[in-house]
Design a protein around this nucleic acid. Structure first.
Lengths: 221, 221
DNA sequence: GGTGAAAGACATACAGTGTAAGCAATAGCT
DNA sequence: AGCTATTGCTTACACTGTATGTCTTTCACC
């Protein structure tokens, strides 16, 4: 009598379930017991496939890093960087728990390593020295993670910036916080939309980097 | 008989103790019970002075934000921004738990509001439009937080980069991760120090912003 | 087909978490 | 002096990650 065997528990299945659970109910809701329950299993059974909860978190990070489109070394570096940065942001916005995990632990999964290698390679092949490549990579990543975290943790939906600004305006007296008061007024009355678009800072950095290689390329050497 | 009255519990004292405890033993060690114990009091007594643990965390953030030196509107904006960015980084490195908290919650304490107001004002008075001011502020902050978080969570001390790179090199085969392999080799043999200095990315952004105002200042208007 | 071994799922238990509810003692004010 | 509000303490609950030990199922080999 072939009872309906449910597919066996594997590390892959556990990690996918963890990502799904965190996507749906938030990282706080991801406990070993709940994760096990979502797989119709007891909590301790998970420990046959992952070493502990940190291992789960690491695996989750590497899994979603796999969703980021990698740049291709040798290509047009600026466009490549734009694509990979935007993709990284999109992926982390799609998995709101991800950015926090990425910055709060170091991940050395295969996806992460490949992602970093492609990024370094793209910059290096574009003519940056190794020191510049290392720092440029870091600067761009800092911006990506910083931007994503700030956007995600801002509790107001962009569609409600105007009404929220109007609501909070009384808490920002003009004599005490003149500039915030001014800015909030403009957001409230629609003069300024208050959005922080990703490309502003990204292009700032990319343009500055471009000038860096260009100045050397046009120089004596 | 005047028994040695210990100073009364106040919100201020609780928050200061929380900061001290987190500084010394890490944010994970900050439980309500331990926090209470450090004040020679029981856990539930704290709830007469703070509403819950989140309130404690918010208070801690605002307290250390008070340590950041604010820029002064009307001053030389680039230098002012450099000082405030560097100061913010220093403060957050001195309180390793702070960056994570700052980005994972929105804080509306008086110190935070004043800090933001000063930053916005400095940019605005420098000739940036409100839209530019808002986005420039955001871009710089993204970099500050991103940089601090990445630096803090990197598990290797800069003094040990070379030896660590040598150790991990076998895990980065040249055929699979050519660029990481190359970079790690250079760090291992001392050709490249592997440090990500804060000013690199910061000056990238500040220079780009400067070009933004300069181009308008030198234009028709 | 029978047998030994390994793997995986489970049950129990422990120390720790945030905090709700109720009680006791103190302090300040009239 | 007596009332009231504040503050601290005790107990309790639901929940966390995971160490430990046991039981069942599966698989390789003769």
């Amino acid at each position: 009598m072939p009872q309906p065997r449910r597919s066996p528990l594997t590390r892959e299945r556990v990690l996918r379930a963890a990502v799904r659970l965190a996507d749906k109910h938030g990282l706080d809701a991801l406990s070993m017991r709940r994760l096990a329950a979502s797989l119709k299993v007891e909590a301790m059974s998970l420990y046959n496939h992952v070493t502990n909860k940190d291992d789960v978190l690491d695996g989750m990070v590497d899994q979603i890093v796999g969703e980021i489109t990698r740049p291709t070394p040798g290509g047009a570096w600026k466009a490549e960087m734009r694509v990979r940065a935007t993709s990284a942001r999109d992926v982390m916005l799609a998995h709101p728990w991800a950015a926090m995990l990425v910055v709060s632990r170091i991940s050395v999964g295969p996806n992460m390593l490949g992602y970093i290698d492609a990024t370094l390679g793209t910059l290096r092949e574009a003519g940056f020295t190794w020191a510049e490549t290392d720092r440029a990579w870091n600067a761009i990543d800092c911006y990506i993670y910083g931007y994503t975290l700030q956007l995600q943790n801002f509790p107001i939906d962009p569609a409600e910036y105007a009404s929220a600004a109007a609501e909070y305006l009384p808490m920002l007296p003009a004599d005490q916080y003149p500039y915030m008061h001014d800015l909030s007024s403009r957001v409230a009355n629609g003069t300024h939309d208050g959005t922080h678009d990703f490309s502003f800072g990204l292009e700032l950095i990319l343009d500055a980097l471009e000038r860096m290689v260009a100045s050397r390329g046009g120089g004596s050497q």
